[in-house]
Computed example of a mutant assay.
Amino acid sequence: MTNEFAVKATSLVKTFEGKEVIKNCNLTVRKGTIYGFLGANGSGKTTVFKMLMGLLIPNAGNIEILGLDSIENKNKILKSIGSIIEIPVFYDHLTASENLELHLSYMGIANPHIDYTLEMVGLKNTDKLPVSKFSLGMRQRLGIARAIIHKPEILILDEPINGLDPMGIREMRELFLNLVKNHNMTILISSHILSEIEHIADTIGVIVDGRIVEEVSLSSIKDQFPDGLEDYFFDIMSGKGGKVIA
């Protein structure tokens, strides 16, 4: 673990049709860690992720990715990020390998390790199968493969285990931990499955009504909420506080 920040967002504001949906939002993610991003539906998680990706421009505030201003260095930063934002979309008539080849060509990256990446996400031996024949879980695995194929420094994953069965969820958990430990990646991940975040996260950030109300180490949460992350999260959501002394 390092003190260097992979992501630092300060005083972010985002409005849609005059309504402020992200409000003075601050977020910090250290390099080489997994940041579990929690919040109720509609709280602003996906909007924050889209701003970090450069898909949305904040109305106010500043975002630094790997020490670079996200707006001034958008194209350079995008090559350092892999992501799943909302439901992954593919060319259904193409195979998994062909979809990844096309993605890499868009990014101008050569000499990929496509077969190895597909094996990492559990899609080995699917070369001849068009994506139209994939199950929801297989599509989700392919989305993860596309996010990591160019060996990014940062992964931004919005509900990445949707559609996976229990075995698949466990395999992706192990993959994410491996990517941090052995491939020097930093991961920001949102999920409604709190037990999965509890298995892998170093830090928890909770967003309520467009504002991150707390960022705290998972170890501190476990010290003060012995029954786990669920009790902590629902304490905050119910307005009881949930505040942790880090």
Rank of each mutant, 00 (worst) to 15 (best):
D92V: 00
H93W: 11
L94N: 05
T95S: 04
L100V: 04
L102Q: 11
L104D: 11
L104I: 12
L104H: 09
Y106V: 14
Y106W: 15
Y106C: 14
G108T: 13
G108R: 05
I109S: 09
A110D: 14
A110N: 12
P112T: 15
P112A: 08
H113L: 13
H113N: 13
I114K: 04
I114A: 04
D115V: 03
Y116W: 14
E119Y: 09
V121A: 15
G122A: 05
L123G: 06
T126H: 15
K128R: 10
K128G: 14
L129T: 15
P130D: 11
V131S: 01
S132A: 13
F134V: 05
S135V: 08
S135Y: 07
M138H: 10
Q140L: 13
P152Q: 09
E153I: 11
I154A: 00
M167H: 14
I169M: 02
I169T: 00
I169S: 00
R170Y: 05
R170F: 02
R170Q: 08
E171T: 02
M172Y: 07
M172E: 06
M172L: 09
R173H: 07
L175A: 09
N178K: 15
L179E: 14
K181F: 05
K181E: 12
T186D: 04
I187V: 11
L188N: 04
L188M: 02
I189S: 06
I189T: 03
S190N: 01
L194K: 10
E196G: 12
E196Y: 09
I197R: 02
G205I: 04
V206P: 01
I207L: 00
I207N: 03
G210D: 08
I212K: 12
E214F: 10
E214H: 03
E214M: 14
E215Y: 07
S217W: 01
S217P: 02
S219E: 12
K222A: 02
D223Y: 08
D223C: 01
Q224W: 00
F225H: 12
P226S: 08
D227S: 14
G228A: 14
L229G: 05
E230C: 06
Y232P: 01
